[in-house]
Every structure is written in structure tokens, then in C-alpha cells.
């Protein structure tokens, strides 16, 4: 009896808490194929990129010698042309984040609430969602035609002569308008899903209490949706920071480089001028900035959720 019991406990201690190493290797094999892909196409490029950013690098020749942190320090050299362009592009991109994110969160929030209160929900939802599954190039091809100064449908419709894509502030207004048209539906779907997941009673109770639509929106809906709205805010901020295709294809970064985005600047440095080392240094600075922004935003989101 005693030996049997002892054997049982010993079996338990060797088997339950920790599997033996053969079995662990068997389990690891499930993750291995993905990890290989991850290592080759994400892990290695990050490490390799870090070393490239410390060297002069021309894609034809390869490394042109180590420069240490020189290319990072150069970004803080105000007399360097590439550094001036980088900071200008970063400012442009920040400006875009500030003028696009409020619309990308606010408009879908209002529309989602309207949809919740309205019949034909699925028709409206489809209409608003469809543009967000289009490619950047289809969207920009359509809008570069819509926004032509001479004879473009928008100017024709309003009987105006607005230089949408070639003068400021119209160029930013156009890029903002197109971005909202293109990606608003994505946020709308998330917010609408959030509203339908609220306990039915919260919104109904408000209406029984006689709260109007706007009161309910302000003092019930928005506070209840806080965590979803934070997610939408984070995704939109990151998306807007990664601005590339809209100015690249609509304005070419003009007029006068005023809509040049950081991504396009890095693209020009790397693939236009073949300065891959300094372009990678710029990309890493931008990557760190973006990671910091999303880290801070994730942090506040966590705190709010408690």
C-alpha cells in the first residue's frame, strides 16, 4: 500500500507540474514554423537594421564603413540638409496626426450612434465600411480625379475653382478628407460593435429617465465606451503616423514639400538617394517615437480599465 501510494505521488510530481523535455520539445515544434518566419522576416531585419543604421550603406556596394552613432547624431545637426528634411517631414506628419485623428474618432462615433438609433443599419454600415477595404492606390486614383482643379467632379459639382491638390491649405484639407473617407468605416465598425455590446438596459434606462439623445450620448454612451474609444484612438494615431500613400500619390509631397511625410522622406533617402544607412537611422528614430506613443497610450488605457 505504502509503496503504491508513494509511486503515485512520485508519478504526479514528475508528470503534472512540468512535462518531460521530450514532450516539451514536441510542444515547441508547433510554434517553431511560425518562429522561423518571425525570425527571418521580423526579428532578423530589426537586428540587421540596427547594424545598417551604424554604417554608410549603399544598396549596390553594401557597407561603406562604420560610422557608429554618426547618422543618429547627424539628425540633430541643424545645418545638415537631410536632417532638416527629416524634422520638417516629422512636423508635417505630426500636423497630419493632429488634424486627422479627431475626425477619425469623432465622426465614426457620431455616425455609430446615429446608426444604432436608425433603421436600415446594415445598409448604412456597408456603405460606410466599403471604402476601408480598398487599396491605397484605388482610393488615390479615384480622388486624384475627383479633386482635379480644372474639370474635376468636385469643383464641377460646387462650381468652384479650388486648387485642391496643389495649394495649401487645400492640400492638407484634401489629404484629410480622403483619409477620413477611406478609413473612417474601420473605426465605425469597432465603435458600433462596442455600442451593441453595451448592456441594453443602460441606453434604455436613460430614455425612460427622459434624457434626450444628446444627453444620453454625452453622459452615458461616451463614458461607457471609454475603453473602446481609447483603442480606436491608438489605432488611428498609429495609422496616421504611418502616413505614406495619400501624399505620395495625391500631392507627391508638395506643394513645396509641405505634405512630405516621414515615411516618404525615408523612402526618398533610402531608395532615391541610396543612403540606406541614414534612412534606416531615420526609420529607427521614427519607430522608437511610435513605439513610445503607443506604449504611453496603452499604459493609460490599462490604467483606465483598472
Amino acid at each position: 500500500m505504502r509503496t503504491a501510494a508513494a509511486r503515485q505521488t512520485s508519478l504526479r510530481t514528475t508528470e503534472r507540474p512540468r512535462e518531460n523535455w521530450v514532450s516539451q520539445i514536441g510542444s515547441f515544434l508547433f510554434v517553431l514554423p511560425y518562429l522561423v518566419a518571425f525570425g527571418f522576416f521580423l526579428g532578423y531585419p530589426i537586428v540587421f537594421g540596427a547594424t545598417v543604421s551604424l554604417q554608410h550603406w549603399n544598396p549596390m556596394i553594401g557597407s561603406g564603413g562604420w560610422v557608429g552613432l554618426g547618422q543618429y547624431l547627424n539628425l540633430f545637426n541643424p545645418s545638415d540638409l537631410a536632417s532638416q528634411q527629416f524634422w520638417q517631414a516629422l512636423l508635417n506628419t505630426l500636423l497630419f496626426v493632429f488634424i486627422s485623428v479627431p475626425f477619425l474618432v469623432g465622426i465614426p462615433l457620431i455616425l455609430a450612434y446615429c446608426m444604432y438609433l436608425s433603421p436600415w443599419k446594415s445598409v448604412f454600415r456597408s456603405a460606410f465600411f466599403f471604402p476601408s477595404i480598398l487599396s491605397a492606390t484605388s482610393v488615390m486614383a479615384v480622388w486624384s480625379w475627383m479633386l482635379q482643379t480644372e474639370g474635376g467632379p468636385i469643383n464641377h459639382f460646387f462650381g468652384s475653382q479650388i486648387p485642391w491638390l496643389v495649394r495649401q491649405p487645400w492640400a492638407w484639407i484634401s489629404i484629410d478628407l480622403v483619409t477620413v473617407w477611406w478609413s473612417m468605416g474601420f473605426n465605425l465598425i469597432i465603435i458600433y460593435a462596442g455600442i451593441t455590446q453595451l448592456p441594453q438596459s443602460t441606453l434604455d434606462a436613460a430614455s425612460i429617465d427622459g434624457a434626450g439623445i444628446i444627453r444620453t450620448f454625452r453622459s452615458i454612451l461616451v463614458p461607457q465606451l471609454k475603453s473602446i474609444l481609447s483603442v480606436v484612438l491608438i489605432l488611428s494615431t498609429i495609422g496616421s503616423f504611418n502616413l505614406f500613400a495619400q501624399p505620395f500619390l495625391l500631392t507627391g509631397g508638395g506643394p513645396n514639400n509641405s505634405t512630405m511625410s516621414v515615411s516618404q522622406e525615408i523612402y526618398n533617402q533610402g531608395f532615391g538617394l541610396n543612403h540606406m544607412g541614414s534612412a534606416t537611422a531615420m526609420a529607427f528614430v521614427m519607430g522608437i517615437l511610435l513605439a513610445a506613443v503607443s506604449f504611453v497610450q496603452y499604459g493609460t488605457l490599462r490604467e483606465r480599465r483598472g
Binding site: 531585419p45 544598396p59 498609429i238 504611418n242 533610402g270 534606416t280 521614427m286 519607430g287 513605439a291
Partner: peptide
Amino acid sequence: VPFIAVLIPLYL
């Protein structure tokens, strides 16, 4: 990690 950070090393 934003895509732009790995664009060039991935290309190389």
C-alpha cells in the same frame, strides 16, 4: 514595430 522600421533591412 512599425513597418517603416524594417522596410530597408528587409529589402537588403
